[in-house]
Simulated scan of single mutants.
Amino acid sequence: MSDLQKSLRIRESLLPPASDVIKRLGPGAVAASYIQLLDAAYDTVEDGDELMARFINTLQDSGEKTSTYLHRLQAVLNQAVRRGGVATGEADRHLLKQLCRGCWDNALLLKLEPLKDAPPSFVDLLLLLRGEEDKEASRAVRMKQHLGSARTQEKGVCKPSSHGYQAVMKILEARQKHTDTGALGWAKMQGSTLRSYQLDTQSS
């Protein structure tokens, strides 16, 4: 695409008041001139050092995905590069360093720290983070399914019948009376109770 075509695309894509801003340049201006004027009108007025200070103080918000946090960092870093706050060749190193500094996911940090010797590009870093987030989401789904299945199985466990419980209680009560009734009486009561338990079990 030629420079004139780029300029035409810029003019066609703008609406007032932005389109009014570039009118002073005329239709023959190059695309770089349009962009420079639009930056002056609408871009941040902070200089490179101020933008780098903002970049360093940009931390991950509560509940924010790490990939979303990376996007925010990249946006501020791009502004700092344009304003001369950091060299283009150092951008990837600063991005990874601040990501490790501002991210609260300790498990993810263990995987990011070894990358500092050879920082990946923004695109590669974004793909890595999205892959980790996808794995974490899959683990959460599997855990939810497993725990839900376990609760269903617990509900299906049969509880002891009331007849069996009552029979056992009768035997225990009979033991307490053993000293009063003697061995013969105890044997009779135990036999009677056991027969009662058998009948209760059969009827249940």
Rank of each mutant, 00 (worst) to 15 (best):
P114W: 01
T88R: 07
Q153E: 11
A53Y: 13
P114H: 08
S162M: 14
I56N: 11
T181L: 08
G131R: 13
S162K: 13
I56V: 13
A29M: 06
Q60R: 11
S196M: 07
Q36A: 15
S67E: 08
M1R: 06
L126F: 10
Y165E: 09
G28K: 04
R9P: 01
T44M: 06
E154P: 02
H178S: 14
P16D: 04
G131H: 04
K144C: 04
V123D: 15
S149H: 09
G48D: 06
D200H: 08
K159W: 02
D92Q: 02
R83P: 07
T181G: 11
G63T: 02
H71W: 00
R83G: 10
K116T: 15
L15W: 00
L70I: 08
L51H: 00
E50Y: 05
G156M: 07
L37F: 01
R139E: 14
Y197R: 08
A29Y: 11
R101V: 09
Q202D: 12
R139L: 10
R83K: 15
A137F: 00
L99H: 03
L70G: 04
E46D: 10
K111L: 09
D49P: 01
Q79H: 06
E113C: 14
F122Q: 01
R9M: 11
G131F: 14
T44D: 13
Q153F: 02
V141D: 15
W104H: 08
D47K: 04
P27L: 00
L147E: 15
Y197E: 04
K65C: 05
E154G: 15
K144F: 08
R130Q: 15
K97Y: 09
D61N: 08
E173I: 01
T179M: 03
A80E: 00
M169W: 13
E90K: 08
Q79R: 09
L25V: 05
A137N: 01
V168R: 03
T201Q: 13
L95R: 10
D39E: 11
W104M: 05
R9S: 05
K188S: 08
